[in-house]
Nucleic acid binder design. Sequence first.
DNA 1: CAAAAGCGAAACCATTTGGTTTCATTTTAT
DNA 2: ATAAAATGAAACCAAATGGTTTCGCTTTTG
Lengths: 112, 112
Amino acid sequence: MSSVKPDKQQQHDVFQAIADPTRRSLLQLLVDRELPVTTLTGHFPMSRTAVSKHLRILSEAGLVTERKVGRERRYRLEPEPLLELKRWLAFYDRYWDNKLDALKRLVESDES
Amino acid sequence: MSSVKPDKQQQHDVFQAIADPTRRSLLQLLVDRELPVTTLTGHFPMSRTAVSKHLRILSEAGLVTERKVGRERRYRLEPEPLLELKRWLAFYDRYWDNKLDALKRLVESDES
DNA sequence: CAAAAGCGAAACCATTTGGTTTCATTTTAT
DNA sequence: ATAAAATGAAACCAAATGGTTTCGCTTTTG
């Protein structure tokens, strides 16, 4: 009768994943090339383990994948999930593309 | 000689601001209209104070502004900071726009 | 004027986050 | 066969996050 709490592991989404500057840099570094954790760590003032945990979060969000090569584990950028962000952002395109909207808001707020 | 700790107040950027789903909803609700805190709170299962704190964070990121109207404080969407996100995201456009890049990566990783 | 509405500030709390160090495991190099 | 390299897992910690309740201030309404 083991009643050890179900222990729900909180998944990360793409919005949370890119919220951290270190993780954004990691994505940047992985553009056009696979890199192992140790190499990536060289670019940050923190331990390899910390970088590893950031990679894990990126992985949960689907933004990187890994493949074992010998004793290395090479990480690769997986940009597809960024499309969700792109779509979210596209909603606000009206504010820049459509000058009429700005005018509309101006008129509407002018009720003095 | 007042030596009261500088008290650095951690500013929030646009990446952190949109990381929270409640805050993304708030932005959504403010599209094309100003709304006071109480009205906004009606859309969430949390206290007015909690919503107020989310608005504060959005404000720090420059995503909303407020103006006092009587005893109300009306919040308005300020989409400009989203351009930073847009620019950041644009960097990865190559992955979708340029099919040649996919090929390039494929070839480069084939060094067996 | 007194009550109510609208709101932020403050104090408080549990959980998450971002980091650390230590340890065990797998794979390569001597 | 050992030693070293590469790495994730685990335990731990301080600070940030996301929420609450209480309080006080300003403005409107009756």
